[in-house]
Amino acid sequence: MFKRVLLKLSGEFLANENGFGISPDTTAQLARRITQALTGTDVQLAIVIGGGNLWRGARNGQGMDPATADYIGMLGTVMNAMALQDAMETAGSPTRVMSAIPMAAVAEPYIRRRAIRHLEKGRVVIFGGGNGAPFFTTDTTSTLRAMEIGADVVLMAKNKVDGVYDSDPRKNPDAKFIAQATHLEVVERRLEVMDATALTLCMDKGLPIVVFDLFEDNNLARLFAGERVGTLIQS
């Protein structure tokens, strides 16, 4: 069973059916799902959320300075973190947002020991603002924060994809499901799990990754209870 978990969410989990913006109803449903999974457990949960529902540097930032485009994306993650915090607390989970980019009026500054203390007190901690520097994805932020807080695992949440396949199952009906693999196998086979920098960090530190379908009934609760769900990647 996991004691401390880092859950990686994409910004699209908060979006409307078109995959853009923040939908209060969708965000509330997500928050209830997470809160229900936590209920009755001793799991300490931290979350990193992306900003793709609001801004994608590669697409929206064409013609801009790449660093500026990335900073805009990081601000988008703080907006998502605030929206999710509001929904989580409405659902009954005490929550704190911590931002790598200082903005004291809306979020606490990211301080490692303070984040750990929040987790120990039973609060969900949402990390926004990326890692405070451009040119890194929220995948990399997830692995960095997981290592800093001493998480047991990184849970990579997916929508309607129940794990890792040898090719895209949405395009190839013959794609084969992979129940377990090593970090090195994922790198060598170029399986789409997370970006290469993040995956290499996990491999170097022996940090397990679980790729799973967040919206399959009870998957998150089953993971918190120590059951095997989705694809496990470990050394």
Rank of each mutant, 00 (worst) to 15 (best):
D42L: 05
D42G: 07
V43Q: 11
Q44W: 08
L45E: 08
L45N: 09
A46H: 04
A46D: 06
I47Q: 13
I47R: 13
V48F: 05
V48Y: 01
I49G: 07
I49D: 08
G50E: 10
N53Y: 04
N53G: 03
N53K: 05
N53S: 02
L54R: 13
L54D: 07
W55Q: 11
W55F: 15
W55Y: 15
R56Q: 09
G57V: 09
G57A: 15
N60H: 15
N60P: 01
G61L: 10
G63Q: 11
G63D: 12
G63Y: 06
M64I: 01
D65V: 13
P66D: 02
P66L: 07
P66R: 14
A67F: 08
T68F: 14
D70R: 04
D70H: 12
D70A: 04
Y71R: 15
I72L: 14
I72S: 06
I72G: 04
G73F: 05
M74G: 06
M74I: 07
M74Q: 06
L75H: 12
L75N: 09
G76Q: 09
G76W: 05
T77D: 03
T77H: 06
V78Y: 00
V78H: 01
M79S: 10
N80K: 08
A81L: 14
A83L: 02
L84T: 08
Q85T: 03
A87Q: 09
M88K: 13
M88I: 11
E89A: 03
G92Q: 12
S93K: 13
S93G: 03
S93P: 07
P94G: 10
P94S: 04
P94E: 09
T95V: 12
T95L: 13
M98W: 01
M98D: 02
S99M: 05
S99K: 08
S99W: 02
A100Q: 01
A100S: 15
I101N: 00
P102V: 01
M103P: 00
M103I: 11
M103D: 07
A104N: 07
A104Q: 13
A105R: 14
E108M: 11
E108I: 06
P109C: 05
Y110D: 00
Y110I: 00
R113F: 05
R113G: 00
R114M: 11
R114T: 14
R114L: 13
R117C: 07
R117Y: 11
R117T: 11
L119S: 10
E120S: 13
E120W: 01
E120F: 04
K121E: 15
G122F: 07
G122K: 10
G122N: 08
R123G: 00
V125Y: 04
V125D: 08
I126G: 09
I126S: 08
F127A: 03
G128H: 00
G129W: 06
G129I: 09
G129F: 04
G130H: 05
N131P: 11
A133N: 14
A133H: 14
P134D: 04
F135R: 14
F136Q: 06
T137K: 03
T137M: 01
T138K: 05
D139S: 10
T140I: 00
T140Q: 01
T141G: 02
T141Y: 00
T141I: 03
T141A: 15
S142P: 01
T143F: 09
T143G: 01
T143P: 02
